[in-house]
Computed example of a mutant assay.
Amino acid sequence: MDIRYGANQADVKGYDTQKLREEFLIEKLFEADEVLSTYSHIDRIITMGVMPVSQVIALEKSINCRKNLGVEYFLERRELGIINIGGTGSVLVGDEAYKLEKMNGLYIGKESKNIRFSSEDPSNPAKFYMCSTPAHKKFETKLITLELANKVEMGAFETSNKRVIYQFIHPEVLETCQLSMGCTVLDTGCVWNSMPCHTHERRMEVYMYFNLTEENVVFHFMGEPQQTRNIVIQNEQAVISPSWSIHSGCGTSNYAFIWSMAGENRTFTDMDHIKASDLR
Results as ranks from 00 to 15, higher is better:
G81K: 07
I82F: 06
I82W: 06
I83H: 09
I85D: 08
G86D: 02
G86C: 01
G87W: 08
T88V: 12
T88K: 15
G94Y: 08
D95N: 12
E96V: 08
A97D: 14
K99S: 10
E101C: 00
K102H: 05
N104K: 10
Y107I: 00
K110W: 06
K110Y: 07
E111I: 01
S112C: 01
K113N: 05
K113L: 01
R116M: 06
R116G: 01
F117Q: 09
F117N: 10
S119D: 11
S119N: 10
S119Y: 10
D121P: 08
P122R: 10
P122G: 06
K127R: 13
C131R: 01
T133V: 04
P134A: 10
A135M: 05
H136W: 14
F139R: 09
T141F: 08
I144E: 02
N150D: 15
K151V: 14
K151L: 12
V152R: 15
M154R: 15
G155D: 12
A156F: 09
E158R: 14
I165L: 10
F168P: 06
I169A: 06
I169P: 07
H170C: 10
H170Q: 11
P171K: 13
E172I: 00
E172N: 15
C177P: 04
C177Y: 14
Q178D: 12
L179Y: 10
L179D: 06
G182L: 04
T184A: 14
V185Q: 14
L186M: 08
D187R: 13
C190F: 07
C190L: 02
W192M: 02
S194T: 05
S194Q: 07
M195F: 15
P196V: 05
C197S: 09
H198V: 00
H198A: 04
T199Y: 05
T199D: 01
H200Y: 12
E201C: 03
E201Y: 12
V206P: 04
N211V: 00
L212V: 07
T213N: 14
T213V: 02
V217H: 14
F219A: 06
F221E: 07
M222T: 14
Q227W: 08
T228D: 03
